[in-house]
Amino acid sequence: MNRIDYRLNAIVDGSLRDIGALPALASLAARNGATIIQYRDKNAPTRLMIETAQAIREALAGSGVPFVVNDRVDVALASGADGVHLGREDMAAETARSLLGPQAIIGLTVKNTADAERAIAAPIDYACIGGVYETLSKNNPDAPLGIDGFISLRARIRAARPDLPVGAIAGIDAARAGTIAQAGADGVAVIAGIFRSQDMESATRNLRVAVDRALGGDRP
């Protein structure tokens, strides 16, 4: 598997177009401490998704920050993204790996024990547990896991795959980022905590600092 620095996953969501161009937002996050960028768009047509993903990839060129596409393996392939992040209803990780190849980054969402077992067995490079807290960025029918729920799923994955990076998502700001990292997260995935803040640059830096401090220093 690939070694992934998951300390700060900045998710550039299609709903952020009212704020600014998505490639520019991705570049801003990468310059201020994001260690991986994810493009998510639940409503855009395929052509627009590919064009946007290509533009994000170009905006990140030379940054050293990897770029994955949420859900859509076809968009990841067509745009030249570094990989894909999969949910429980998406393509199986095994199939995605066969299509994208061994160098591609593949992440997987974990919401419950069944998902955790799937992550343990799957050919993935990281997992992300959530939603940990309530969020306004996505319509989520599942109740928040909370810290205790996160800790339980994290422990299950760690026992079987101790080297697999595991992040946390949903409702995370700088204060919560430190808390969740102390509880076992290798990093956090954030949308509103960065891109809906008044000062996106400072919000990104503060999130990264909070995670680094909780993990015991500036390390992947």
Rank of each mutant, 00 (worst) to 15 (best):
A181M: 08
Q182R: 14
I194A: 14
D199F: 12
T179A: 08
V166A: 01
S197C: 07
P162S: 04
A183N: 00
G167D: 10
S197R: 01
G178H: 00
A189V: 03
G171T: 01
D186P: 13
G167L: 05
V166Q: 04
A170L: 01
Q198A: 15
A181E: 01
T179K: 04
P165N: 11
L164G: 15
R158L: 10
S197Y: 00
I172R: 03
D173F: 15
I191T: 07
P165K: 09
A174R: 13
I180R: 07
A185S: 14
A159E: 14
A175I: 01
G171E: 01
I194Q: 09
G193H: 12
D199G: 03
D163L: 12
D163I: 07
I180W: 11
A181D: 05
I191W: 06
A181T: 02
A177L: 05
S197A: 06
A160L: 10
I194S: 15
A160M: 12
A183P: 04
A192Y: 13
G187M: 06
A177V: 00
A174M: 09
A181Q: 04
A170F: 02
A189P: 09
R176I: 11
A185C: 01
I194G: 12
I194F: 15
A183T: 04
A170T: 00
I172C: 06
G178E: 01
V190A: 05
A174C: 13
G178M: 01
M200W: 08
